[in-house]
Design a protein around this nucleic acid. Structure first.
Lengths: 129, 129
DNA sequence: CTCATTGGTAACCGTGACTATTACAGTTTT
DNA sequence: AAAACTGTAATAGTCACGGTTACCAATGAG
């Protein structure tokens, strides 16, 4: 995503992006699929195809990307059946959920503050060429 | 840990704790081992042995537990070699590390705010017996 | 039209992390 | 001595994820 923002608006093929992160094009396409469903990127098939940002990088935060690629909550509470004869076990899930919801909000707020354009700027600032 | 705080100061065996979370005593002992190294619990072998909190539950935060159980950072940056011919790939690790360090701090601050005694109180409040 | 290039997706394998389980040694109380 | 506990090692099973191959659909160049 940062690469897309860096090459402002231009379309890049999945193989090119794959080389950038040293992985397989299919992995990239899987990610682009999720990002596409979230409305962050557009893909064009065909000979001169590729992927490009669907919105301006100023309007995309890291939280948008996080939500798109990691489906659900970063924290998960195991849903084993509680031990009915234990007061702690019975109430724990409810209590933990409330706490984790708070720290999730804190994390989200932090990620919301960083826009994709910020990352691109930082890269440009430290790029000699 | 909440169970230990709930049964204020009393010692509990790993098998008892295991039944509470519906798992195997060995799993509990492995966790207690880490918590012990972090100075959060004490364990006593022998016939009337078990584990107990090493500090008052008011002085233990969820962040303490998190650090003790999960060794390192919740976020990890893959340490694949960067693609030297790509400016983004070369600078990305540094930029990402700085950003993630911020959100880690946010998460830590949120977990620091919750003390073990808070959880025990909440359980007691909603416990009829 | 033909064909090369690309995205999209399914199928499969290998790997790494974690849980569960068994087993055994060491310690402490009875 | 016996019982009950911790601590730890070894093992097997499960699950998620990355990597890979393969195939289809779409698009643009010739």
């Amino acid at each position: 995503m940062t690469a897309l923002a860096y090459h402002d608006g231009e379309s890049m093929s999945s193989s090119l992006l794959a080389r950038s992160v040293q992985t397989n094009p299919v992995v990239i396409r899987r990610l682009l699929g999720r990002l596409g469903k979230a409305g962050l990127v557009r893909a064009h098939p065909g000979k001169a195809g590729g992927a490009e940002l669907a919105r301006r990088p100023e309007s995309i935060t890291l939280m948008d990307i996080f939500r798109a690629v990691e489906g659900g909550s970063p924290f998960s509470i195991p849903d084993k059946p509680a031990n009915k004869s234990c007061a702690v076990s019975c109430r724990m899930k409810r209590v933990l959920a409330s706490v984790l919801s708070e720290t999730e909000k804190a994390m989200a707020a932090s990620l919301e503050k960083v826009r994709l354009s910020d990352l691109a700027s930082e890269i440009r600032a430290s790029d000699p060429g």
